[in-house]
């Protein structure tokens, strides 16, 4: 297969060079479709919230803000470690890359554990549930659950990327999979900035 030079030095096969931009655009379109999905739920929640009398409804407890802030900071921290994982891979520092990647996965698992604990607290102690607490419970569990599912998928995604890179699927000139993984993880972080703001701050 023909080999071509890429900006910044290095060589990749021609097929990769020709299709990288297209695959990037395709992945960004996937993220845009996910933004549309989250936006529709978020705007529905905001509409319902502003059309009711008081928020949260009487008798429904808000989620604990301190735990929410810690959980948010853990997830945002995982975004930072993911960014440095990619940067280290680009510069050929594999051990540092692996360390940052594992840190990202651990932080993701910690976030999900924190969310699980929050669900447990709300359900058992505060009696807030998906179906029994009106629009607040339905919105909260649907949106945070959908986000949690994305984090869960992201953890598997990053684990597979790590295993692939250990087996030499990527090199420092050819790492689109890692770029896509980083974009996905940042997307999951950024969605949480919005969800954290609407559920805990306003």
């Amino acid at each position: 297969m023909a080999v071509v030079s890429i900006p910044g030095g290095g060589e990749v096969d021609q097929l990769y060079a020709e299709t990288r931009a297209l695959r990037l655009q395709g992945f960004l379109l996937f993220l845009v479709s996910d933004i549309v999905l989250f936006s529709s739920f978020i705007f529905a929640y905001l509409y319902l919230r502003n059309s009711g009398q008081g928020w949260p409804p009487p008798g429904v407890t808000r989620p604990a803000i301190a735990l929410g802030a810690v959980n948010a900071a853990i997830l945002f921290g995982s975004g930072a470690t993911m960014h440095y994982a990619l940067e280290n891979f680009k510069h050929g520092k594999f051990m540092r890359y692996a360390a940052f990647m594992i840190s990202t996965i651990i932080l993701g698992v910690l976030f999900l554990s924190g969310q699980g604990f929050e669900y447990y607290t709300l359900y058992v102690h505060d009696h807030v549930s998906w179906s029994g607490s009106g629009i607040f419970g339905a919105s909260f569990f649907t949106l945070t659950g959908m986000h949690g599912f994305h984090v869960f998928c992201g953890i598997w995604y990053l684990t597979i990327l790590l295993l692939q890179s250990v087996h030499g699927v990527y090199d420092k000139n050819k790492y689109f999979g890692l770029t896509a993984g980083t974009l996905y993880w940042h997307f999951v972080d950024v969605i949480w900035v919005v969800l954290f703001s609407i559920f805990y701050l306003v």
Binding site: A72, F76, L183, H186, Y200
Partner: peptide, 22 residues
């Protein structure tokens, strides 16, 4: 994404410090 991540960090820190959040 990094800019929004920084914003998220600011929100988490301010929430932890008790300046914002309910």
């Amino acid at each position: 994404m990094l800019g929004l991540l920084a914003l998220g960090g600011v929100l988490a820190a301010l929430t932890g410090a008790g300046f914002i959040g309910k």
